[in-house]
Design a protein around this nucleic acid. Structure first.
Length: 646
RNA sequence: GCCACUUUAGCUCAGCUGGUAGAGCAACUGAUUUGUAAUCAGUAGGUCGUUGGUUCGAUUCCGACAAGUGGCUCCA
């Protein structure tokens, strides 16, 4: 007998070799039907795998993340079975569960798969589900596994096995399909009730662009059709807040073939948002002791040779233009220009820290396939600044930058993000990373301490640092689930030396400053793209391109509306009168759809009482108010940058 | 850059198997003077992404290019 400990602490005895599924059955048939896998001593196992020793057991169902991913991974195998039956000779690489669903990378031997084939595959999978085949685990000696796939001529699985040790190779079979797989899997195909193959994509073998491209099929499955329907409905909802769609609808930005890919044109409404953001940045930076600078959009080749960007990142820059035998580049970053401002005058320790800020325009030649609405563009405006400081000042400066992030995030209500602390890889010192082991450890430690003391949750990622120092990235996700760095805060102990930046210390000796690169509001492009999705287009009043729309009941009240408009303008509130010859219902509908925060409805009653009927976007009629009262309320809401959506 | 798909009026989309295009909304004009999410009528608007080819004839078939979309790679 073995002793099984359950999550609630209960301990029961069972026959040695019993499976999690059998244990579930002994509790209730209903539970057994729901069990997808089991956590045995913290490891995810097949629910059908015999348990030989005393163990801590947790039965995993659809409600557990590990249960879901087991379900999806098994679905990938099911899809592979369908692919093999429809495309005989297909070779399979890997088919993992992902955040939402699964994929399988497949070599179809030069054949193409189309959208229609996905429907066929779904149909085949549904047939296979009806057979309710068990997923059978089998341990295979390495030699036997190699022989099996050598005979099959499957170089991909042979490659995988090559990296495994004898004794840790398992095969899983369901129905007619056998695959090399670590597992675990759900007991059988039956529970996969709802299947949707979402898209086809190319994916490089082993994620290396030098390798062959495999066909990747993405899919998602659920235990019931209802859940699939809900998921698809959710995707439809997400599409509605896609910044590319909203950006067009709200007149924020546009793209034009004649301008070029990745070069957004900011329309008047978008420009208002840009100006509000810059106002916020200027206020904040001025209060924090920054000095604003302005630098040209181009510079000579030599600058980027000094910075080290040209040898490493030339592919990311627009090709140079040649004038009088000298090459000029569009700037892809502002730092070298700012360094030159630092070195333009002799600096003393009394000038430090020197904080130079600029909403700098940069051009980056992003690969065509990488461009994505406003989130990934070739012309960007960066909320950039460089802080030159001594080592002693560094921690305080870095912390102040961090505080600025938090302040901004509070204003915008940004809560769903991950702070990523990117560190160096000691093995690559001198190659990918500047060879200053002590400085790396010292600055990494300083950064880590700031994060901990500021009580900011973060994840550490070794091998992701910049070549000149560790950094913090703020990772966010677009509505369609793509990950982006919204903002970045970087330590740089290399550029100072490359540019021979110096200041005279209190001891009269020259010293090289540490540099902090920071962009808490990222770029206008990405930040506004993010905000569009974050707010679903419903900007808080201070950011809204149009803050108040005055809606006269009929044109009899136009004079009153125009007087009101003047009062709003005098109070620096962005307002317009809807002077169209339309019914009030139509005016309200159109204004709601344009997501204007406030509507002032004025008719006979309001004129007589010298009031306005206030309507809040998305909330409806707020009743009638005195003009001064509502204007003062709006002024306050705007001045405090309230994100209150009441 | 790579794989796949898409590209018809300002927007959203129709347009069996090739015979030079249609709706709704928006725009414009007129009527209506309206009370909290679409008043009615009329008018105008398209070299069917660009460019080669096949064909008596191409929006429709094939190729190239461009832009976009979903991924992959990349992201200083």
């Amino acid at each position: 007998m073995i002793r099984i400990t359950f999550p609630d602490g209960a301990v029961r005895e069972y026959q040695k070799g019993i499976t999690a599924l059998e244990i579930a059955k002994s509790i209730s048939e209903g539970l057994a039907r729901k069990v997808l896998a089991a956590s045995v001593n913290g490891q995810v196992w097949d629910a059908t795998r015999p348990i030989e020793d005393d163990s801590a057991l947790k039965l995993l169902t659809w409600d557990d993340a590990d249960g879901k991913s087991t379900f999806w991974h098994s679905s990938a195998h099911l899809m592979a079975e369908a692919v093999e039956s429809l495309f005989p000779g297909a070779k399979f690489w890997v088919g993992p569960a992902i955040d939402k669903g699964f994929y399988y990378d497949i070599d179809l031997g030069g054949r193409q798969i189309t959208e229609e084939d996905l429907a066929k595959l779904e149909k085949k999978m549904n047939e296979l589900v009806k057979q309710n085949s068990s997923y059978v685990r089998k341990s295979i000696p390495k030699a036997e596994a190699l022989a099996y796939f050598t005979e099959k001529g499957d170089e991909y699985k042979l490659d995988l096995i090559g990296g495994l040790n004898d004794g840790e190779i398992t095969f899983y079979t369901q129905g007619a399909f056998t695959d090399l797989c670590r597992g675990p899997h759900i007991p059988s195909t039956g529970p996969i009730k709802a299947i949707k193959l979402t898209n086809i994509a190319g994916a490089y073998w082993k994620n290396d662009s030098n390798n062959k491209m495999l066909t990747r099929i993405y899919g998602v499955t659920f235990p019931s059709q209802k859940e699939l329907d809900e998921y698809l409905a959710m995707l439809e909802e997400a599409k509605k807040r896609d910044h590319r769609k909203l950006g067009k609808e709200l007149g924020i930005f546009t793209m034009d073939d004649d301008i070029g890919p990745g070069l957004p044109l900011w329309m008047p409404n978008g420009t208002i948002i840009i100006e509000e953001l810059e106002k916020l940045a200027k206020e904040t930076e001025q209060a924090a002791g920054y000095k604003r600078v302005v630098t040209p959009h181009i510079a000579k080749e030599n600058l980027y040779l000094t910075s080290g960007h040209l040898p490493y990142y030339q592919d990311g820059m627009f090709p140079p233009m040649e004038l009088d035998g000298t090459k000029y580049y569009l700037k892809a970053m502002n730092c070298p220009h700012h360094h030159k401002i630092f070195s333009a005058e002799p600096r003393s320790y009394k000038d430090m820290p020197l904080r130079l800020a600029e909403y700098g325009t940069c051009y980056r030649y992003e690969q065509s396939g990488e461009l994505f609405g406003l989130m990934r563009v070739r012309c960007l405006h960066m909320n950039d600044a460089h802080i030159y400081c001594s080592r002693e000042q560094f921690a305080a400066e870095f912390r102040a930058v961090n505080d600025m992030y938090i302040k901004y995030f509070k204003i915008f209500g940004i809560e769903k993000y991950v702070m990523r602390l990117s560190l160096h890889d000691p093995a690559k010192l001198g190659q990918k990373y500047i060879n200053e082991p002590e400085l790396w450890l010292e600055t990494e430690d300083m950064v880590r301490k700031v994060l901990i003391e500021s009580n900011i949750p973060y994840v550490e990622v070794p091998g992701e640092g910049a070549f000149y120092g560790p950094k913090i990235d703020v990772q966010i996700w677009s509505t369609i689930g793509r990950e982006f760095t919204l903002a970045t805060n970087q330590v740089d102990f290399a550029q100072g030396r490359r540019f021979k930046l110096e200041y005279t210390g209190a001891d009269n000796a020259p010293a090289t400053p540490l540099i902090i690169h920071r962009a808490p509001l990222g770029t206008h492009e990405r930040f506004i793209g993010f905000l569009l999705e974050h707010y679903a287009g419903k900007f808080p009043t201070w950011l809204a391109p149009l803050q108040v729309k005055i809606l006269p009941i009929s044109d009899k009240f136009m004079d009153y509306a125009n007087t009101l408009l003047q009062s709003l303008k005098n109070a620096d509130i962005r307002a317009e009168v809807d002077d169209r010859n339309e019914k009030i219902g139509k005016k309200i509908r159109d204004t709601e759809l344009m997501k204007v925060p406030y509507m002032f409805v004025v008719g006979e009653k309001e004129v007589n009482e010298n009031k306005v009927a206030v309507r809040r976007q998305g909330k409806g009629d707020l009743g009638s108010m005195d003009i001064d009262t509502i204007i003062n309320q709006l002024k306050h809401e705007i001045a405090t940058r309230s994100s209150d959506q009441e």
